[in-house]
Design a protein around this nucleic acid. Structure first.
Lengths: 352, 352
DNA sequence: CAGAAAATGATTGACGTCCATCAAATTGCA
DNA sequence: TGCAATTTGATGGACGTCAATCATTTTCTG
């Protein structure tokens, strides 16, 4: 009645424990006939290996790694923070975590990093990826070493990763557009968009999604050509100021990328009624701007959940388990009223 | 360097393994002096018991239970569905789960159920609670039996539960109001509210939050007195129809409670431009209504996440572990563009 | 200071798996 | 048929903890 053990399986299969063990851990030197008998018994008894006991026995340490873009980007700092926090918690369960910072958004840099990294001996790695065939070589190499690879936040080429954990950026852009449309209440308007780089796939996808919804459902709105910002706050500051002072017809601002501190500062300087304002990613700046009423909405991808799921997924992959069907990660909409308490600004409170 | 074992602790404390074991499992018959020596070593070495090994040894089975209101309410069906799904997954880890259906929203019924339930032998229970002193007796009894109790979705009296897992309904109401305010784009309007029962704390809290934000930030909006619906779809249908046909000044509808299928049906019958429309909880009806464009927003409390967290929390409480600081659960805003795939209507897909 | 009570140490067998070793049985092939 | 190769079985020691037993040692009490 309780979960069957491998001994039960062996008995049911009519072989010795040793043989059953050879089969399920495929150690070789087993006759095909025995393999089948054991397999049959496994499915019949619904045996699943007791991972806890197995780990205990072999003193397994899960060696996990994260490859994260280096730099001071607030969003990735938040990611790193979450990784560290979960990692600490996981150390009790024999999980070791290393974070490698790779040169941001450079295909060559990432490719090299993956190659170097491949020399090390990890069980699984979550990579903030890029779409490029030149990653193929290093990734194939990783797989051949038995390293489990997942894409995090930004996907890798589909064929070379076991899973992707992150939002669909088209959906994110659509969501931003939907909210912007609603906030116009049927009135006409013009939306100034800002984009970090037209080479960044997530940025262009958001923009595409945004445009699609506006043209589908809000034809009275005009999506202006995006201003290229390189995610630079000071540049955003200048450009936003210019828009606010010289383009009174603009009824909404939508920043697809980062650098929001500049945008917020520009708005803060403007006494008059401001346009409707949507940005991405809840970080210190955007959070404060919401509270101060300088912006209206933040579309967030919940990096905390993503990081958690990355750990869960990697462990499952490494164990060869399968996971229950997890719901897709969807962009979360924050207004000033449903902000989670800021973990950085509050004392870690007890959990009773 | 790896995690210290109890043997290490014993050695460091200068006592035998047996004594150290007596201390950490408080089996009694230990001198105060030894207790202190062991405690000191525990903190010094940063020992934490290997739960996997412990469970393996004692063949522990976590007996968990959920007390959920009985009935056909779509939201609680969703909750039950999630519980079953997670339970299946957990059975591998020696967790057994029972769901008890209690007569909905009746203090006496709940009180009786808890009392009966107390006779059984569970380790932990998550209860969809009510605020009432008459629950005190049964809950105290549970605690005295060593059963860990948490409130789920709707809280229990604070002193008699170890944790609450659910959203803050004032926040949920505030969020609904914020969105409604934005969707008016500065124009005046009147909002018809619907409430299931003025006795249901969650309903009144949402209403309070809603009213607060409107009066703070959207004075041009008029929150009309709520229509009492008893969460009855056919009643909601009739009332909604009446509002739509006879109150052209109404610019928004906000249903605090359940029974949305009636509301949606009424809107579907109405060819003309409809008011802005916000409801709570993403279930089959509300989901479809979003897709069909019959409503604009769903404020959801993510029962899947709540259920997951309930399991995590109960296990931690039972093990006497403490948890990493978990972020507060915040109401999630859904529009038609950021809906998660419907798990009920899609084949469970593989997770690669 | 003796005798009882309390505290401690030492040890052992689970739990389910991994991994290694060695002997025995079965097969293949010349 | 005989010898080697392959396949099996049996076993034992980890892993870290729980729980129990029994023999000692220490402490308390009259």
């Amino acid at each position: 009645m309780p979960n069957p053990t491998l001994s039960d399986v062996a008995q049911a299969a009519g072989v010795s424990y040793a043989t059953a063990d050879r089969v399920i851990n495929n150690r070789g030197n087993v006759a095909q006939k025995s393999i089948e008998k054991v397999r049959e018994a496994v499915t019949r008894l619904d045996y699943v290996r007791n991972v806890a006991a197995a780990n205990l026995s072999r003193k397994r340490v899960y060696r996990l790694a994260f490859l994260i873009p280096k730099g001071t980007n607030a969003f990735f700092n938040r990611i790193k923070h979450h990784i560290a926090s979960v990692a600490e918690q996981m150390s009790v369960e024999n999980v070791s975590v290393d974070v490698f910072e790779v040169s941001a958004f450079s295909v060559d840099g990432l490719s090299d990093s993956i190659s170097e990294f491949g020399q090390l001996d990890f069980d699984g790695v979550a990579i903030v990826g890029l779409q490029s065939e030149s990653l193929e070589g290093p990734l194939v190499d990783l797989r051949s070493r038995g390293v489990k690879v997942i894409g995090l936040v930004s996907d890798l080429p589909r064929e070379h990763r076991a899973a992707y954990i992150g939002i669909d950026n088209i959906v994110a852009g659509r969501t931003a557009a939907r909210m912007t449309g609603l906030a116009h209440a049927g009135q006409a308007g013009a939306i100034q968009t800002f984009v970090g780089s037209m080479d960044a796939r997530d940025h262009t996808e958001r923009l595409d999604g945004f445009r699609a919804v506006v043209s589908e459902d809000y034809p009275q709105l005009d999506v202006l050509e995006p201003i290229l910002t390189k995610d630079d706050p000071s540049f955003l500051y200048a450009q936003t100021t210019k828009v606010l002072t010289r383009a009174p017809n603009v009824t909404a601002l939508y920043n697809v990328g980062a650098g929001n501190s500049g945008l917020v500062a520009a708005i803060g300087n403007q006494p008059a009624k401001r346009p409707f304002c949507v940005v991405h990613e809840l970080v210190a700046h955007s959070r404060q701007a919401l509270i101060d009423g300088h912006i209206d909405l933040v579309i967030d991808q919940r990096p905390d959940i993503e990081v958690n799921r990355a750990f869960t997924m990697l462990r499952a992959l490494i164990d060869g388990r399968d996971l229950p069907p997890l719901p897709d990660l969807m962009p979360t909409i924050y207004v000033r009223d449903n902000l989670p308490a800021d973990p950085l600004n509050q004392k870690t409170k007890d959990q009773n």
